[in-house]
Amino acid sequence: MMYVRRVERRLARLGGKLFGVAPLARKLVSDAVSAVDDFMTARLGEEFNERLARVPKNLMSSGVDPFGMDPEWTKYALASAAFLHRHYFRTEVRGQEHVPAGRALLIANHSGQVPIDGALIGASLFMDVEPPRFMRAMVEKWSQTLPFVSIFFSRVGQVVGVPENAKRLLERDEVLLVFPEGARGISKTFDQRYRLADFGLGFMRLAIETGTPIVPVSVIGGEEQYVNVKNVETLARLFRMPAFPLIPQLLVPGGVLPLPTKYRITFGEPMFFGGDSDDDDSVMEEKVELVRATIQAMVNRGLRERKSVFFG
């Protein structure tokens, strides 16, 4: 017991010393935060703050929601996404009136090697949709084992990808984004661009079980940001990655940045599905195919109307 006390006391003293450095660190952090705040207002306009005040939040007394989402963190993540959205990719958003005010499942095509499409859909839900919404999405469970990443995802509203979490979010009337193509979708090679891979069935069971409208979303512009020549399967297996894309532009200085393509995000009319969420896969597949075909048609139409990958 004596030893324990002594160690405790020593730890307390160490804590006290750390506390001594804290005021300086705190000042640095608060300076940095206010600089970011100013930049945000200058770049994104007062509109950003005004929208932040209006977004439905559903918080507990500790200032976070039950999944650990903290608006104080989310606002910075959103600001950087909104900056890319407005100034880098100059996203053109259509059909924002189709997003319902209550619960909704956004089903989108996935592309671009890195999930910038997800961030931009999140930004447009906040910047362009009425009322503004915080988008929720699901992340791989191994992300929870990574320090800092796990806190960041949880604070900006990304939850662990298990069906129970998705169900609970929808029951709380949140907007949930799902890419049913999964990893197969994001790492498409350039010759396969805008050809939707097979969809998983989970989202349809979820929509039926919770009575949630499905909003089909098409994203155009992602496939050209990184041109993937080939997926090298042996290397992917070696590094235990879902895919190992060969991207020539990474060899060019500055090529790490995605090409500034113009994104076009279109929200389609909500689709409602009934029936039994425990139906056979074959029954589900038919319904899922309907959603997939709708999104593919939206993508095809968008591609026909598009005059330039980078402008207009």
């Binding site: 405790e8 804590g15 039950p66 999944f67 320090p147 800092f148 990443v149 949880s154």
Partner: peptide
Amino acid sequence: RLPTIPTLMGFDPM
């Protein structure tokens, strides 16, 4: 009850 509470860097679970 520890006077200084050790936490794991980069983790802050609910």
